[in-house]
Amino acid sequence: MQDTVIESKAPTAKTVQVERTKKTTKTESNAMNAKRSPTEIAESITETVGKPLAQNAKLAMRNVNVHYDQKQAVFDVNLDIAENQVVALIGPSGCGKSTFLRCLNRMNDTIDICRVEGSIQLDGMDIYDSKLDVVPLRARVGMVFQKPNPFPKSIYDNVAYGPRIHGLVNRRADLDDVVESSLRKAGLWEEVKDRLESPGTGLSGGQQQRLCIARTIAVSPEVILMDEPCSALDPIATAKIEELIAELSQNFTIAIVTHSMQQAARVSNRTAYFHLGRLVEVNETEKVFTNPDHELTEAYITGRFG
């Protein structure tokens, strides 16, 4: 029954896939869901399936709702991100995953009409506490953006900027060390060590993005948020960044939004699937991509929409 619904939604070549995955239809797709479109299914979701919570949560989100003016973008999300784990947030465009990610270091503060409800705790501290200063928060929860956005300064100054404003080092030699180690961690040192004083904007796209990552880790944040860090890059640059993420995960807690399911599968420990602002499923990455619990997740990873 359900298949016919999806067929009517996407009556193209994908129908074949639908037939193939018919058998894996999950427990959730009971009679209740019959004859409903993915949108309707998504709107009826009240609870996330899988294991959204974790033991040693670095970041704990509870009942997070995000509104843009009248429009609600994120509905009632509960999720834990455990220490030194990479969590991938996937889902179709406009499903609220980037919005959600930006909540985690309050970058949404820059948007006037954006309103966040619920609790988000970093090591047990509510980051939406009205008395909380966002500046140290963002030093602990760094962010890498979709488009590489180096400052129009030298490569050195780009990386040194964070440590400087946060007063992390006292001496120039220490700063040099921080810059070098950050660039090394970002895998950029060998490429730029001879031209640290040349402008960061002169690098290639992939290098720029690694520079931005180096800039972020120079502050030694505890959590790094990555908002589709590879979407503007070619496959080779993407591969380098992915390699880098794997290395970084040893020391940092990472939340990454990505459009590429392969990327999510490659880099993350856990994967969270968002649909229309709702967190549908959270599970071990392997499980999500081989045997997801929710029909929508399955529909997405098999490419039926999104």
Binding site: M107, V135, P136, A139, R140, G142, Y161, I165
Partner: peptide
């Protein structure tokens, strides 16, 4: 965003 994301006030 880059500046704010790194913790600049």
């Amino acid at each position: 965003e880059a500046a704010l994301g790194i913790g600049a006030s």
